[in-house]
Design a protein around this nucleic acid. Structure first.
Lengths: 236, 236
DNA sequence: CAAAACCGTCACACAACAATCACATAATTA
DNA sequence: TAATTATGTGATTGTTGTGTGACGGTTTTG
């Protein structure tokens, strides 16, 4: 729901104790958060499914469906990017451990300072938002995530050698423009090039990886000039 | 083996009166703190710049550079997370106010009970530590509680060496992104790396701990690039 | 039209890299 | 201080990546 940088962060609070819930609600609202509230696990889970929250505060002991189960369900359904802060009544070691495996990102033992809660929530939200910047190159249905060093075409992950990765990078960055052999060689080997024309081999290997298994080929040779990566239907 | 939970808190004491300084030094040391000492503001500031203290005890009146100025400088230079306890000679209201504006977190009026000092220091340190971001890291079914220094995978607690813990931390924080060897080495050893490539051994050990006993492996090697921690089923 | 240049294809040897492990020394802890 | 654990080192093995050359097809050039 909320994604803009300057927008209020929205938080889902799931807690059955009226007094605690009210206290948290009032405090966080005053501190600039927007809150949704659920008094039991079932309702909480449904709210979490229907909306995109920036964080969820989840009591461990809840009527109808406990916090663990809610958290687990959420994770299994793919909400792995919404941070969950679990509130545990007493610090039973067991509780904590199972809390971990349910996929909670942090926990807080009651009773707690409300300032502490705020600090943790802010930390979680911040962490979440700073995780975003994934630099991804895209050409047609081919994507190359520079941070994960993962290459995917048509939903299928490809396994490339280090040199192929470098090749792909310079080609994708230039796409849809031509890159000359010189530029490529420079980029990969610097100034001491290998004496044989090994680039041909590597181009061959790269093609084998990114084009051979698919119908449309992205890597084109410009005879006596260089290479060019580009998808047909792209508007260029 | 696991030391960080019980690690001594390090405190910087900046105080020009020999007798007071000695008294504080001896007392706090006996109570389990580690202390650094400076007799004037200039030296104190430099020490604070060069080291990471858990707290700083700062006299207001100091030779060469008073406590206010030291504190202000520190804050401006980004040490906003190190708590400062200011010692003021008499409780002039004015002093207090400027003390707070300089960014001090607490103040104590001389003369004071040494127990009071300890209590306040402990409060500051505790507050500081509870503020630490990111309490629990999670990747797939692997969790790492940064406060308890507990690593759990699939409900089973794992026993890791200090270096393995550091390794795991940087990898989990980066996950699902790749971390280069350089970054890892930097993170663990700082600038003076061991001469042999001991990282391989540690990676081996880490794998043995977190992957070997389980079916799916989380730690992947990106040849000639680095390492990457990530769970398959995660939608990333 | 032939020769030359260029390129895709491939097999293969060697070099580079990574995993594994045992062990000595350093650091902790009791 | 002794006992235990953690860390760094190097040897060994296995794996993968890279450079090289050979061959044949295609295009360009003279």
């Amino acid at each position: 729901m909320i994604t803009e940088t300057t927008t209020k962060r929205t938080i889902l609070l799931v807690e059955d104790h009226q007094d605690i819930a009210e206290m948290i609600f009032a405090y966080l609202e005053k501190r600039g958060f927007e809150l949704d509230y659920a008094a039991d696990g079932e309702v909480g889970l449904n709210l979490a499914r229907e909306n995109e929250y920036d964080a969820i505060i989840l009591d461990l002991m809840l009527p109808r469906r406990d916090g663990l189960s809610v958290c687990k369900s959420l994770r299994e359904e793919g909400h792995s990017d919404t941070p969950v802060l679990m509130l545990t009544a007493r610090d039973t070691l067991e509780d904590k451990i199972s809390g971990f495996n349910s996929g909670a990102d942090d926990y807080l033992v009651k009773p707690f300072e409300i300032e502490e809660l705020e600090a943790r929530i802010r930390a979680l939200v911040r962490r979440q938002f700073s995780k975003q910047p994934s630099e991804v190159l895209t050409v047609g249905d081919l994507t190359y995530d520079l941070n994960k060093l993962m290459v995917v075409r048509n939903g299928q992950q490809l396994q490339l050698s280090p040199i192929s990765l470098k090749l792909l990078k310079i080609l994708m960055e230039a796409s849809p423009n031509v890159v000359t052999r010189r530029e490529i060689e420079q980029f990969i080997w610097g100034d001491v090039l290998p004496d044989s024309d090994t680039l041909r081999s590597h181009m061959y290997n790269l093609r084998k990886s990114i084009d051979r298994p698919f119908s449309e080929s992205l890597l084109h040779t410009l005879p006596s000039n260089g290479y060019r990566l580009h998808a047909k239907d792209e508007n260029t």
